[in-house]
Design a protein around this nucleic acid. Structure first.
Lengths: 208, 208
DNA sequence: AATATTGGACAGTGATACTCTCCAAACGTC
DNA sequence: GACGTTTGGAGAGTATCACTGTCCAATATT
């Protein structure tokens, strides 16, 4: 198919597809003559993946690019893809206090988690705890443990539900679920907060 | 205190404080003569809150402004603040298919949640499910139910841990916990995913 | 009197994610 | 084979965001 059809099928403007090509987010089509390239289903899939990660997942194109690079690393197994995709998903200019880092390490030990020592999420998490602390709000151990156990339940279910079979598809599903599952989980949490708050504040509020 | 001290105490550059004043994120200080204003502790707190929401919570300044407006609405009770802060927290150009909306409504019913029918999260959630569907990934009912129950556990604990007492402080804590708890929860989920993936993929990977 | 700081206004910056304009080569249609 | 359309490629232009820098006259401080 030509670029116009690729654009029609994915609802991405031609100019934007060209931009993604320039930016190396999308592999060039098969060149047919000097002014014409043919695109195929893999381009359709890739474009949809880019849009899903960027629009629904809220990732910057730079981050999408890193994630895609990990997806395409044929040599990596699923576990490695997960680790490096996580790395690509989160900012890299992180800092955190020693206290919070230790607290995170302790939490990880308490939960019996096996995670790489270099996992950027350790620092991200510690930084978030610091930020709360800085505004005078201490996230107490009980609440933190509740977060952790909820996270474990979710993560176990997610890993168990990962489709097996075609590698490419499994890797894509992993990345998608990590990126788009976040917004889903947060939206559910807000809904549950509203419900919990309605109950706690008594019956002065009508539910739907 | 003068602006220079406010800047020193919060580590926010004077130029940026002026910008926040212009943008209406920060209330003006008490004018003392034509070229001088006095700031107080409330400005320090507010500035820290702005920075926490923007930097750690990842909110745009426009969203921070809406959230702060809700915080300052004296007439609202906690439950209302929660609802409107949620509204301010999420985008407002949402769309979703009828199928996904119905699915979300069903989920809410199954969970026995009482949420406002207008809650934007309903649509946000449905849109996220659509996005996954569009890239060929269906989030099955079992996994969705796991998300929902984890969300309930987290939300119940959060609402229970909300400090009671001074209204202003409670409202601020609510907003902070909603905005900064998100990143915390997602970071924990990724750590748990790595751990779950390490276990599922066998012992070929060293934990920390 | 000399130096520094302030509020206020406004212009400038750098990053991000497109979007538009051109162009010559190539294609499809009559 | 003339004619309108599409393409790839390159470049410039645009909009938004979140600052950052410059300037100024009016104070404060020393």
């Amino acid at each position: 198919m030509w670029i116009a059809e690729l654009s029609r099928r994915t609802e991405v403007p031609v100019a934007t597809i060209k931009y993604y090509l320039r930016e190396g987010l999308l592999a060039p089509g098969e060149a047919v003559g000097a002014t014409r390239s043919r695109y195929d289903e893999s381009h359709v899939r890739r474009l949809r993946l880019i849009r899903a990660l960027a629009e629904s997942g809220g990732l910057s194109l730079a981050r999408v690019r890193s994630v895609l690079a990990e997806v395409d690393e044929e040599s990596r197994d699923l576990h490695e893809v997960l680790g490096s995709a996580h790395g690509a998903l989160i900012p890299d200019d992180l800092t955190a206090s020693v206290e919070s880092r230790l607290r995170v390490d302790e939490l990880i030990a308490d939960q019996g988690w096996s995670v790489y020592f270099e996992a950027a999420d350790r620092v991200l998490l510690a930084g978030a705890l610091d930020a709360l602390e800085k505004v005078g709000y201490h996230l107490d151990d009980e609440l933190l443990a509740t977060y952790a156990s909820a996270a474990t339940q979710v993560a176990d279910a997610e890993i168990a539900h990962l489709p097996t079979g075609d590698r490419q598809q499994t890797v894509e599903a992993t990345v998608l679920l990590t990126a788009l599952g976040g917004p889903v989980l947060l939206a559910l949490r807000r809904l549950a907060q509203q419900s919990a708050s309605a109950h706690r504040l008594g019956s002065a509020h009508q539910p739907s």
